[in-house]
Amino acid sequence: MSTNTAVRTKKSDEDKKLAFKKALSTAIPYLGLLILIVLFQILTGNFLTASNLEAIFDQGFTLLIASMAGVFVMATGNLDFSLGANAGFCCVCATLAATYIHPIASIPVAIIVGLIVGMVNGFAQTVLRLPSFIACLCMMFILTAATQSLITGSSIMMPVSMMFWETFARKLIFGIIYMAVMIVMFKYTRVGKELKTLGVSPEAARQSGVNVKKRIFLAYAITGLAAGIAGFWFMLRTGGAATTTGQTTTSDVIIAVVFGGMSVSGGASSKISAAILGTLIVTVLNNGMVMAGFGGDPQQLVKGLLFLLVIAVSTKRDPNVIIK
C-alpha cells in the first residue's frame, strides 16, 4: 500500500467564508450570554455579585441536568415530551420513599423510577415502533395523572432531616461530575457519536454498524435517568413534592437547548455545550429580568421575542433541506 500522505488542497476563499460563517454561528450563543450579563449588570448594578451567581447556579441546576440529557434525544432529531412529567413523578416517588422507607432510599428510588419510565419510552418507540411524539405525549398524561393521585393536599414534605442535605458545595461537586460524565459520554464515547449519526440518516448509521434500536432506547433511558436525578434535586430544592413540580421543565429544556445553539433537527451539528450555555442564558434571562423590574407581563414577551431572534440568527438556511 503506497504510503503517500493525503493531498491537502489549499484553502480557497470560498472555504474561508464558509469557515467564518460556521465560527460565527457557534459564537452567537456565547456572545448572547455575554451581552445579557453586561446588560443586566448595567441595569441592576448588583447582578454580578457572588450571591446572585449562587442563586443562578441553584436555579439553573435542575434545568442543566435535564437539558444535558435532552441533547442526547435531540441529537437523533426527536424530542422527549415526557421529561418534565417524569421529573415530577420521580420527585413524588423520592419524597414518599424518604418519608416511609429511609431518607437515603430517595436517591435510588428516584433514579430507578426515572430509568424505568425512560426505558418504557424507549421500548414503545423501538420495539413497538410507535411514533415518538405520541408515545411521549401519552406518557406525559399518564405521569401527570399518577403524580396528582399520589399527592394528598397541595404537596408532601420531605423529612426535616433532609433540609440540610442540599448545600452549595455538594451541588457544585455533583454538577461538575455530572457535566464531565455527560460531556465525555456525548463527545468521547460511542453513545454520543452514534446518536448524532441517527440525526443525519438512520439507514446510513445502520450500515456503519450502529445498532439503531439500541441507541434510541439508550437515549430515552439516559433522559429518563436524568429526569430521575432532576426529580431528586427538585425534592431537595422545594422541600418535597407538589403537583406542579416539573410542570414547565419540558418546554424549558427545549427553549434552553435552542438558545444554546443546538440544531433542533439533530445530526452533525448537535453539541452538548448547547445545553450548558442554553441553561445559563435562560436562567440569566429570568433572573436578570426580574431584578431589572421586568418581572410582570413583559417577562414572557421579551423571552419569546429573544427566542425567535436567537433561532433566526443561528439556524443555517438550506433551501432544499426538508423542514418539518
Binding site: 452514534e194 448524532k196 449519526t197 443525519v200 440518516s201 450500515q207 445530526g267
Partner: peptide, 27 residues
C-alpha cells in the same frame, strides 16, 4: 459493506471525514 447509493446509505453525508472514517471502529 459499501452500498450502491453512496450519498444516502454508505456514508453520513453531512458529517466530516474523520467522523465517517472512524465510525465502525470506535470499539
Amino acid at each position: 459493506f459499501m452500498s450502491k447509493n453512496r450519498d444516502t446509505e454508505s456514508m453520513l453525508i453531512s458529517m466530516n471525514i474523520q467522523e465517517n472514517v472512524v465510525l465502525p471502529s470506535l470499539d
